[in-house]
Amino acid sequence: MEKIKVQDSVGSVLIHDMTQIIPGVSKGPRFRKGHVVQEEDIPVLLSMGKEHIYVWDQTPGLIHENEAAERLAQAASGPGLVYDSPKEGKVTLSAAQDGILYVSEEGILALNTLEYIVFSTLHNHRPVKKGDKVAGTRVVPLMIDEKVILEAERIAGTFSSPLLEVRPMKSLKVGIVTTGSEVFHGIIQDKFGPVLRAKVESWGSVVLGQTLASDDVSRIQSCIRDYLSQGAEMILVSGGMSVDPDDVTPTAIKEMGAELITYGAPVLPGAMFLLAYMGDVPILGLPGCVMYSKTTAFDLFAPRLLTGERLSRLDIVKLGHGGLCLDCPVCTYPQCSFGK
């Protein structure tokens, strides 16, 4: 890389994008990498505060910021992502499909511990739409030692999964069992069904049906088994999740031989959330807050299950950090801190 005076630069090829800022009007590249400087460009460059420009002198072992950013994006990207061409040395990664963003927090940290590497992402497990920006990367210097990029590529390759990917939510067959003798006998109107059906369908899955069950262990178990026999791939059991003596939903699920992952989650609202498995079929016990709170533990965990992820208790308890909903007057999830 060689530094020359702007007045002497006619015919030179720019080695990087050059940004022009017009306060209150625009900010962006005025001249792109590869542009051949013309006589009429000289006053513009000077007006941008450029007294010198840099031209490529082919120093062995150095690579340009654009190439470095592209290689970083490629090394970190997995399925469900696309990335654009470098702009002013930065590459932006976007979702190629609707789904859930999965980020290797350890992997991104490892890249950023390398000197001059910059890699920024959205939070792990965030729901995204096709076209959403999910990450950006660049290097700090205009030219960087290729050894740094080779090390970044090596680090990315040591992880068993991509550092970044967007997993689509599968269309599953979902059965809903709503418990509570007061609902079963028609004393009060069911409020769970419409909420759960709307959410399940918004995630692209199909509701097999909704069954009402009294506060009876054998009845609840019979309803769950009925949906399993119909080929349900997820079962939602709503109501009866507190510690009152007549709230028997957790007991019914545990005593039918399901593998209990957790009864309770460090998430508010949704602390009485339950997750169990019958084989590969997740059974979710949903507390009353799911009826009236816009976003709860259900919204944090169900979409991940719909990608095919099998959650452990550790996956759930990790959300104690970030699991507090602020109950905003207007819910903006996922554009907030909840579940992050």
Rank of each mutant, 00 (worst) to 15 (best):
residue 1 M to A: 13
residue 2 E to C: 01
residue 2 E to A: 12
residue 6 V to K: 09
residue 12 S to F: 09
residue 15 I to M: 13
residue 18 M to Y: 14
residue 23 P to N: 02
residue 32 R to H: 11
residue 33 K to L: 11
residue 38 Q to P: 00
residue 38 Q to G: 01
residue 45 L to K: 03
residue 56 W to P: 04
residue 57 D to Q: 10
residue 65 E to K: 15
residue 66 N to P: 04
residue 66 N to I: 01
residue 72 L to A: 07
residue 78 G to Q: 08
residue 80 G to F: 12
residue 94 S to V: 12
residue 101 L to W: 12
residue 104 S to P: 10
residue 111 L to I: 08
residue 117 I to M: 07
residue 126 R to Y: 06
residue 131 G to M: 06
residue 131 G to F: 01
residue 133 K to Y: 03
residue 133 K to C: 10
residue 138 R to N: 12
residue 143 M to T: 08
residue 148 V to K: 14
residue 153 E to H: 05
residue 155 I to M: 09
residue 166 V to Q: 01
residue 167 R to A: 14
residue 173 K to S: 10
residue 173 K to E: 08
residue 174 V to D: 05
residue 174 V to H: 04
residue 175 G to W: 03
residue 180 G to V: 00
residue 194 P to K: 08
residue 202 S to M: 12
residue 209 G to Y: 10
residue 215 D to E: 06
residue 226 D to Q: 15
residue 227 Y to V: 12
residue 232 A to D: 06
residue 233 E to C: 04
residue 239 G to Q: 02
residue 239 G to S: 04
residue 244 D to C: 05
residue 244 D to Q: 14
residue 248 V to H: 12
residue 250 P to L: 09
residue 252 A to L: 08
residue 252 A to C: 08
residue 253 I to S: 09
residue 266 P to S: 11
residue 266 P to W: 09
residue 274 L to N: 07
residue 274 L to F: 03
residue 281 V to H: 04
residue 287 P to V: 01
residue 290 V to A: 08
residue 294 K to I: 02
residue 294 K to V: 06
residue 305 L to T: 02
residue 305 L to S: 02
residue 312 S to I: 02
residue 325 C to H: 11
residue 327 D to C: 05
residue 327 D to R: 13
residue 329 P to F: 09
residue 330 V to Q: 13
residue 330 V to S: 14
residue 331 C to V: 07
residue 335 Q to H: 12
residue 337 S to M: 07
